[in-house]
Write a protein that binds this DNA or RNA. Sequence first.
DNA 1: TTGAAAGCGATACCAA
DNA 2: TTGGTATCGCTTTCAA
Lengths: 342, 342
Amino acid sequence: MSKNTAGGTRSGIREVAELAGVGIASVSRVLSGQPGSSAQMTERVMEAARQLGYTPNLLAQSLRRRSSRSIGFVCSDITNPLLSSIVSGAESVLTKAGFSILLTNSGGVASVDAERIELLQQRQVDGLILLPALENDPATLALLQRSETPMVVIDRSLPDSIDAHYVLSDHYTGVSQAAHVLLSAGHRRLGLVVGRDVRPTRERIRAVEDSYRAMALEPELHIDSGTLCAEHGEQAMERLLDMTPAPTAVILGGNQLLEGALRVIRRRGIQLGRDLSLVCCDDVALSRLFEPPIATVMRDNVRLGQRAAQLLLDQLQTPHSSEAELLPTWFELRASCGPVPE
Amino acid sequence: MSKNTAGGTRSGIREVAELAGVGIASVSRVLSGQPGSSAQMTERVMEAARQLGYTPNLLAQSLRRRSSRSIGFVCSDITNPLLSSIVSGAESVLTKAGFSILLTNSGGVASVDAERIELLQQRQVDGLILLPALENDPATLALLQRSETPMVVIDRSLPDSIDAHYVLSDHYTGVSQAAHVLLSAGHRRLGLVVGRDVRPTRERIRAVEDSYRAMALEPELHIDSGTLCAEHGEQAMERLLDMTPAPTAVILGGNQLLEGALRVIRRRGIQLGRDLSLVCCDDVALSRLFEPPIATVMRDNVRLGQRAAQLLLDQLQTPHSSEAELLPTWFELRASCGPVPE
DNA sequence: TTGAAAGCGATACCAA
DNA sequence: TTGGTATCGCTTTCAA
């Protein structure tokens, strides 16, 4: 309806210059806050810009400056509260620094990761924050290798040939604490449900295995790997509980597994903390209010995103060689863990 | 490390033209898939582009085409699973159509909404999907009024003077169903916890009040309004339970309230479904596995985002005047609702 | 201090 | 069918 009433076509820098009766370059200088303009010039330009309701075209600005002040964020599924917290942390830091976020979901499909990264690069993002589905997808690796876009990779470890910075969670410590508590309580047969072969998965497995060794015990560990969704949690839990003898304690290596696992537990009338001990990695809403509360390997997801963003900003300002930052995880013991049954 | 080894500076369309020994315009034509190029020309250009590893600069393309094929998404907090589902739904539709998403969190601060919208417009987004914190923030309304960017507003209703499309949830129906169940079970004193004065809040209040009327009952409704976070849920629940007489059933008008409300319920040793009936609007992970399961007013959040994106795409293709789409909500009765105590 | 002019990397008109 | 050229809106020398 109200199409071209007031300003008509969105006014550009030329109109401002004309109205102010000055050169186009001066307008640019004043409006982008560069020094070297008389007070009078500043005044005139500001006034003209205000009158016209002028706002700069950042596309043109970016093209000319060769910097878009935007960064691309590639993750598998923003619906996962873990990821949305990370995005949120990154967004706050980046926005504060004047950057915008281009968000993309890959759906956990490695080939889509590569497509999205390429698209973002075509959009000339100044940097990338990546949480790739896999660590060894050929297409993605090839792309990243010849890429010159600064990037920070979260919770993955890519080949040295790729020039990336890393923000990693110290999954090893948190899971070690959990395993130690379980083994100390007398549990010997443990179940561990994990995702694909990426760093967190490997660290969690290593943590549990080392925990057996640290107590001079022979590992009786059953690893069930899949894709870290509720369905996998459900199926894995059924497989584990159907074993004879079945594990007396299970560690879920991912928040999304919990819902599925709890469905099985509910269905079978299992009482957590008595019939079975359960630990979940990464917090889930309400898991602390559950009866019994679910013991959890915690970490600060928002911080993870903030640090990733900050590392990227640092890298943009003063490029330096690859480095990795390790962020803590810790085990919160809750009543879903108990003694060995019988 | 591996800086300018292979291609050196990212090659542009000129290099491709030169290598192929053709004009720059022809390259553009071939690469953007326009008709009117001989098979031979197509061949030569494609080959040259491949050899150089050429990828187009979408910034330049957007500037010239006056269309960035990107859309801005403004919401309060991506950390809220409701919002992340909406974003996810929108992202999938938009990505499929070749659009990118610029995501921004306003933190629920109305003045920030306006700033973010302006920034996105400067970035020349082709459209906006908005979930503003308030419906009457002067700065935001003024901005939207003079804006010519097509937009879809989710779950808010803005003044007619603003040319927007809407995707709305039919909160009225779901909450009516819930209220009807509670009143039919004999509950008379109801508590309703709501957020700020926006459409969903008004619809929920109206639904409960109408439900009393429909059964020819005198409303004994206690409304506690705040900001839809866990803390508000906690405080509101304490206020409601401290009343004499206290409500025998409470409806929480937002998912984030549940955690806080449950903390109070746990702390006071209240047994849901027996001492108190509880309904939550919008699903929360695990709430169905809770003991007792939490009765919930459901809706399809992903669909909400998908429809918003689709409406925006429709509008971009063939502009038409403001319209609104209403998406269903429905009540799922679960054991957190029971008879009136005593 | 100011402004004219040359790009940034693409598209699109128009003449050949 | 092809290619030269003006242009998108801005930044940035460079000379005045």
